[in-house]
């Protein structure tokens, strides 16, 4: 009888431990993104006709971003300007990084350079790239002799 009264508290601890473990496993499994290979971090969206590349560029104005497209490479470069330091400004915490950045992305197709479109909205840059007509697969109908 003594034991029966002692057990529940142990099970409670076990339950709690199990919950903690589940949470830990779930949180590690949920990381669906890869570690960025450079700045800015990018996402690549694809379809048959082209790709959309989005990049996180908070605090960078459109004038400070250069986008270059050659046949099948895209380069995003620019500069993130540091805050204008006021006189007697004392830093408490500095986590944001500044400076020049450049990133070149190899694309799986030849780009129609006339149809490149780039929009910067709320610190997210979205570049639409259309696959050139010459790069698209051509269907050839076999003729019976």
């Amino acid at each position: 009888m003594y034991r029966r009264y002692r057990l529940p508290s142990m099970w409670r601890d076990m339950d709690q431990l199990q919950q903690e473990m589940n949470r830990l496993i779930e949180s590690s499994l949920r990381s669906r993104t890869l570690r960025p290979l450079g700045f800015p971090a990018i996402n690549v969206w694809t379809s048959d006709d082209g790709q959309v590349i989005t990049a996180e560029l908070p605090g960078v104005s459109a004038d400070d971003i250069d986008i270059e497209v050659t046949a099948d490479t895209l380069t995003i470069s620019g500069e993130r300007n540091p805050d204008q330091f006021e006189r007697d400004m004392q830093p408490h915490r500095r986590e944001r990084k500044f400076g020049e950045f450049s990133r070149t992305i190899q694309l799986p197709f030849i780009v129609d350079t006339d149809k490149v479109d780039a929009v910067l909205r709320d610190g997210i840059l979205e570049i639409s790239l259309t696959r050139a007509e010459v790069d698209k697969p051509k269907k050839i109908a076999a003729q019976s002799a």
Binding site: L34, P36, A41, I42, V44, V52, I124
Partner: peptide
């Protein structure tokens, strides 16, 4: 409040 590109599939992601 992200607007996801319509008609495109996510191929590669470094941020969410």
């Amino acid at each position: 409040n992200p607007t996801l590109p319509e008609g495109f599939n996510l191929l590669y992601a470094e941020y969410e």
